[in-house]
Amino acid sequence: MSASLASSPAAHPGGIPGGARDHSVAERLSRRRARSNMIAKVLCFIATAIALVFLTAILGTLFWLGFKGIGLHVFTNVTRPPGSEGGLINAIVGSLIQTVLGVVIGTPIGLLVGTYLAEYARTSTLGNTVRFVSDVLLSAPSILIGLFVYQVLVAPFGGFSGIAGVAALAVIVIPIVVRTTEDMLQLIPASLREAAVALGAPKWKAIVQICYRAALNGIATGILLAIARVAGETAPLLFTSLGNLNWSVDMTAPMSSLPVTIYQYAGSPFDDWVQLAWVGALLITFGVLALNIIARVVLRPRS
């Protein structure tokens, strides 16, 4: 590192010392460096601006096209054939049920695994393998998880069900909660644990009553992020809970969900359905973004 510093032009701003002729060289070099610096700065500024423009464009489109369709009927009517003033209430409720249950099932497992990694297996081979696998699952294509749950919970039982949908979402939740739990628990200073042990607390009590409480913010962040992530997932639900055009809270039957309904409606030829798709998109996105803002800004994890 220092070698490159020493030989870089920066180390010898005036050029190798040697006289008046070098001043014009120095000036040209200086100007060139200043110019490339300015170009780089402008390009980076533009890049950031482009990213922000995309964000604004997407949110703006959603707002513009989705807001038009918002009305009481969206929240009081179930999905209906085109031209019958249908709404989205069964999709919304179905999404809520499946998301909540998926998180309820996935979080304890994720918590336990994160605890295992942070408290019992920071360096062991099993721990490293589990950590690795969890990281891979975190970014694995969600459609494959849907395929897997189809093979295991749909095909053998001869039916799409809300249960299968919940299972697929739970599988997606687990690695998210694992990652945040492990990170948060690792940040807890050793002194806290030592104090607990010094007072005679068994290890598991130290973890549950002291560490969890200290990391509560971070763990809650992880749960909120997990909710936000699975609330918008479509692919895993396509082959598991399929969708239901009627009002249904029966977990053993196909269950409606907002992302799948949007997927079906957006690809349909009917204007009112496409409008509802935009409304649904608006609802999901702003819900998800609200959760993210709460998680990242309000519940800011101690770092």
Binding site: A51, L55, G232, P259, T285, N292, R296
Partner: peptide, 11 residues
């Protein structure tokens, strides 16, 4: 920029 990452892919 992180919010851009949170937008669901169907959107």
């Amino acid at each position: 920029i992180e919010l851009l990452a949170a937008v669901p892919s169907i959107i």
